[in-house]
Amino acid sequence: RTSMTEEYRVPDGMVGLIIGRGGEQINKIQQDSGCKVQISPDSGGLPERSVSLTGAPESVQKAKMMLDDIVSR
C-alpha cells in the first residue's frame, strides 16, 4: 500500500477544536481515518496553520473530510 504525505491548511483559530480536550479529537481523527495527523506548532502569525497528513490516499481523504467537518461547524 502506498503511503503519501499531503500538506493541508486549517484556520489557526480552529486548531484547539481539531486537537480537542487532551488530544481527544485529533486521536479520533487518526483512529477513524487511519491517517497520521501532524499540526505544525506555530502558524507564524498567519491566519492558517499547516497540517501534514500521512497515510494511504483514502486515509488522507477521510482525514481531510473529518477536518473540514470540524472547521465548518
Rank of each mutant, 00 (worst) to 15 (best):
Y8N: 02
P11D: 08
D68G: 08
T54Q: 07
R21C: 13
Q25A: 13
S33F: 03
R1Q: 14
T5E: 05
D42N: 10
S52G: 05
G22S: 07
G23H: 04
M14C: 12
G13E: 15
G16W: 06
G13P: 08
Q61H: 06
S43E: 10
L17C: 08
R1N: 15
L46C: 14
E24G: 06
G23D: 06
R49G: 06
P11I: 05
P57W: 05
G20E: 09
E58S: 09
G55P: 00
G55V: 00
G23E: 13
Q30N: 03
S72F: 07
R9C: 08
G34Q: 05
G44Q: 14
E6H: 11
T54L: 05
M66G: 02
R49P: 10
P47Q: 12
M66E: 03
Q31P: 00
E7K: 09
G45E: 11
C35E: 02
K64Q: 03
G16M: 06
V15G: 05
T2A: 08
A63N: 02
R9G: 05
A56F: 04
G44E: 13
T2Y: 12
I19Y: 13
G16E: 14
R73N: 08
P41L: 07
Q25F: 07
Q30M: 15
D68A: 06
E6S: 12
S52P: 00
L17F: 10
Q31K: 08
G55W: 00
Y8F: 09
V10C: 08
A56W: 05
V10N: 02
G23W: 04
D42S: 11
E58A: 10
D32Y: 07
S3T: 15
M65D: 14
L17S: 12
P41A: 13
E48T: 13
T2E: 12
N27G: 08
P47T: 12
P41V: 09
V15Y: 06
D68F: 03
K64D: 02
M66K: 03
R49D: 04
E48R: 08
R73I: 14
V37L: 08
T54M: 07
I26T: 03
D42H: 07
V10P: 03
D32L: 13
T2N: 15
E7R: 09
G45Q: 09
A56R: 13
E24W: 15
V51R: 00
C35D: 02
D69Q: 09
I18D: 04
I70D: 02
L53I: 10
K62I: 08
R1L: 10
G23Y: 04
P47E: 11
D69C: 08
I29S: 01
S3Q: 15
I29C: 00
S33P: 00
G44S: 10
E6F: 09
G16P: 12
E58D: 12
G20P: 02
G34Y: 00
G16A: 11
C35W: 00
D42K: 12
S72A: 14
P41W: 05
I18W: 02
S33C: 11
M4Y: 13
I70N: 02
R9T: 15
G55Y: 00
L46M: 12
K64N: 01
E48G: 11
Q25N: 14
P11Q: 06
V10M: 14
D69A: 12
K28C: 02
S3E: 15
S3N: 15
T2V: 13
V60L: 06
P11E: 06
Q25V: 12
G22F: 07
I26A: 04
I18T: 05
R9L: 15
I26V: 07
Q61E: 13
V51M: 08
R21Y: 07
R21Q: 12
G45C: 07
V71K: 07
G44H: 10
S33T: 13
P57N: 03
L53Y: 00
R9H: 15
Y8I: 11
L53H: 01
P57A: 09
R73P: 15
S43W: 06
P47F: 08
V51W: 03
M4I: 09
K36V: 13
K28W: 03
L17A: 14
G23S: 07
R49F: 05
V71N: 03
K62T: 06
M66Y: 04
M65G: 12
S72E: 13
G34T: 02
I70G: 03
V10Q: 01
G45S: 09
I39W: 05
T2I: 11
E48P: 11
V71M: 11
I39G: 02
D32A: 13
S59A: 13
G20F: 00
R1M: 15
G55Q: 00
P11G: 03
T5R: 07
R73Y: 04
M65H: 10
L17W: 09
V51A: 03
S43H: 09
R1H: 05
D69V: 07
Q38G: 07
S50I: 15
C35K: 02
Q30P: 01
V15W: 10
M4H: 09
E6K: 12
N27Y: 07
I70Q: 04
S72T: 11
Q30T: 07
G22I: 04
D32R: 10
P57R: 08
P47D: 13
I26C: 02
P57Y: 03
Q31I: 08
R73S: 15
S72G: 15
V51E: 01
R1A: 06
K62D: 01
G20Q: 04
E24Y: 14
